[in-house]
Design a protein around this nucleic acid. Structure first.
Lengths: 253, 253
DNA sequence: AAGTGGTCTAGACCACAGA
DNA sequence: CTGTGGTCTAGACCACTTT
């Protein structure tokens, strides 16, 4: 009857903790509010700190919490919708481009990239680094690989690297007619350089959006964009700014 | 010159381990091959088992490894491309539908769902459970929420639940004209029921695809599909079956 | 029964942010 | 400097699969 449920198939402590904390977040905390520190929380729930941390990790993965070393754990705002539609992921450098050019270099791409670009192994390609900012914070870091044949006429550009050269490369790319593009999303973990740019630790979960730009029947460019998985909800299709969030949430005063 | 790099900013052991193991996977292992057990591996690298496990978790998150309790850790095949295009995520029940109907019930949806459906709180909606199989293994579990007004004429259907009723509901839904749909992808963790259906443990990382089907200017149905993040690469846009994988991979004999 | 990965503990020390 | 989260250890036991 009113007795406490006997755990016939006991769920792991950390999972139960996750549920308890999740409900507490819904009902007793506001966005931006700081949680008690991990040692206190662990003591309060009568578990080891490692177990408590396992629960927090889950909630961070789900975008409910934000943890920063030296600062503390705060309640995260609902994830922001970020469009990865053809409009925003259009020909790099185009008018409706959501990206900001950072740097450019001529480098030999990773084997997996070289393979889809059909370029020979060890053949250097233009590598443009870009970043995307939304609502005032960095949400994605991108590496754009552009084979040399896609941008023929780079005369008059003396800069061997830098943002100026990047813009020149993208401008050249515009001259090609984009046939179509192929997109894919998958889960990954941030490499050290991406992590730095996204203000996260290495290994942080990211959504990797791979876009193959096809012109004249060939792959004219390949974009590998890593989005912060904790803060972003990628929208596509006929999308707009659908708002779906986890539960009751109030804003801190 | 040829001296070993002094770790001025020492990276975490587990991260270094991840890199070492990742390279070993590329060069010395074939898909499906079984790795040494965790205790042996930890001993071999001179670290605690927990640290070794942190590295393995990373690699599993990246889809490089597959771990099964009681069995062992094996090298995972490259992720399979799964289309989440309008073609596959079309009007549920349509001709090119990739989904298999499992069950149906009339239930009160979670608050977040009720909100986007514009139905009143505590108002039950048709809840259809479906599953998607690709290459012989389950890749996604879906919950489809359909407000009562979207499927008016359910007379002649006596079954209060079950696959038969589910099909009837979807058939009724077809009579509406689909205006457009809005899609979003985000990272989540598998709830207990989804986890069971996906043959994973609760909390396993999943890609949650939320689709809002819009007809007559209203949300006629809402689909929440959770895809296994470890085995799936979601493709969309003008996509096909782009093959991008991590490195040299051979198949076990 | 034996061997695997999964959970959990109670500690320790480190890196970093802020006062 | 203090307090925070991040890393790491050396154990123990549990749940599960296979033999």
């Amino acid at each position: 009857m009113g007795t406490t449920q006997l755990e016939t198939v006991p769920e792991p402590k950390y999972w139960h903790l996750r549920t308890v904390l999740s409900e507490a977040l819904d009902s007793e905390f506001s966005v931006g509010e700081i949680l008690p520190n991990e040692r206190d929380l662990a003591a309060r729930f009568g578990v080891a700190r490692a177990t408590l941390r396992q629960a927090l990790e889950q909630l961070e993965l789900e975008g409910r919490l934000q943890r920063r070393r030296g600062v503390g754990t705060t309640v995260a705002p609902p994830r922001m919708g970020v469009s990865v539609d053809t409009a925003q992921h259009a020909w790099p450098g185009g008018p409706h481009d959501a990206w900001q050019t950072v740097d450019c270099a001529l480098e030999v791409p990773p084997a997996a990239v070289a393979e889809t670009l059909v370029t020979g192994r060890d053949e250097p390609v233009h590598t443009v680094r870009r970043s995307r900012v939304s609502h005032g914070q960095p949400v994605a870091a991108e590496l754009l690989y552009i084979p040399a044949d896609s941008v023929r006429d780079l005369s008059g550009i003396d800069a061997p690297s830098g943002a100026a050269r990047a813009r020149a490369v993208l401008r050249e790319l515009q001259r090609l007619e984009l046939e179509r593009q192929e997109n894919a999303v998958e889960l990954g973990s941030a490499r050290a350089d991406d992590a730095r740019e996204l203000d996260r630790l290495p290994g942080a979960p990211v959504l990797v959006v791979t876009t193959r730009f096809i012109a004249r029947g060939r792959t004219a460019a390949l974009s590998v964009a890593t989005y912060r998985a904790d803060t972003c909800r990628l929208t596509f299709g006929d999308s707009g700014g659908v708002e779906i969030h986890h539960g009751p949430e109030r804003h801190a005063s």
